[in-house]
Simulated scan of single mutants.
Amino acid sequence: MNLTDILQQAGGIESMASELGVPPAMARQGAEALLPAILGGFKKQAQSAGIEGLGGLLGQLGGGGLLDSVLGSQPTPVDQGNDVLGQIFGSKDVSRTVAGQAAAQTGLDSGLLKQMLPILAMMVAGYMAKQGGQSGGGGGLGDLIGNVLGGAVGGGAAPSAGGLGGSLGGLGKMLDMDGDGNPLDDIMGMVNKMRG
């Protein structure tokens, strides 16, 4: 089961769809296009800060409560999602680039995809925090990140286990220009070129 399926089962895709006023199928399509970049961002955090560092960061950002905020009946506090995106992408330019690439792939409006990004980031961070139990550090969170971020991103060890195995699809391959399995460094390169 990929991460999109997990988030759909948890009710996250449906919740995001109703909040943005779009059909669930459209929300799922957007999620599948955006999740590889979000997961790539978390993988980069895990690589630079270690699993414990990522667990601590998830806790600071709101932990499992992030997923609860998306699933709750109140409007999603997207500022928290933007904080998550700031941590994993480092700049709004990357978020814009990710949304633009996903729009080109799916035909969905990039403005809509930009609205989906913080909500999806909250769902992924909250899900990882809940599954990892935060205090587990190297245990639960490490295994979960191995599974969620493994697969196509981790070098192909377990393509069926990771959310990216199924959802990386054309966008991930298109963005992963150097073939290292992590499209985020290539996105960052594109953003730097745009600035220069």
Rank of each mutant, 00 (worst) to 15 (best):
M1I: 12
N2G: 07
N2P: 11
Q8A: 15
G11S: 11
S15L: 05
A17C: 03
S18N: 14
V22M: 12
V22Q: 07
A27G: 06
G30Y: 11
A31W: 08
E32P: 02
A33V: 04
A33F: 03
L34A: 02
L34N: 07
P36S: 09
P36G: 07
L39G: 12
G40L: 05
G40N: 03
G40S: 15
K43I: 00
K43T: 08
K43Q: 13
Q45L: 12
A46I: 05
I51A: 03
G56F: 01
G56P: 05
G59Q: 14
G62Q: 08
G63Q: 00
G65F: 05
S69H: 09
L71F: 02
Q74A: 15
T76G: 02
T76M: 07
T76K: 06
Q80L: 15
N82I: 01
D83N: 15
G86V: 05
I88N: 07
F89Q: 02
F89G: 01
G90H: 06
G90C: 04
S95K: 06
T97N: 12
V98C: 01
A99P: 04
G107I: 00
D109T: 04
D109V: 01
S110E: 14
L112W: 11
K114T: 13
M116Y: 05
M116G: 03
I119Q: 15
I119R: 15
L120H: 07
L120G: 02
A121R: 04
V124P: 03
A125L: 05
G126A: 08
G126D: 06
G126N: 05
Y127E: 00
M128D: 13
A129S: 10
A129W: 00
G132N: 01
S135I: 14
G136C: 09
G137W: 06
G142A: 09
D143A: 15
L144Q: 13
G146P: 00
G146A: 09
N147Y: 13
N147W: 10
G151N: 11
A152F: 12
G156T: 04
A157R: 12
A157F: 12
A161P: 00
A161M: 13
G162R: 08
G163N: 07
L164H: 00
L164S: 13
S167L: 14
G169I: 10
G169F: 08
G170C: 00
G170L: 10
L171P: 08
G172E: 08
L175Q: 15
D176F: 05
M177S: 15
D180L: 00
N182H: 01
N182R: 01
N182I: 09
N182F: 04
D185C: 00
D185Q: 12
M190L: 15
V191F: 03
K193I: 00
M194S: 15
M194E: 13
G196E: 10
G196H: 10
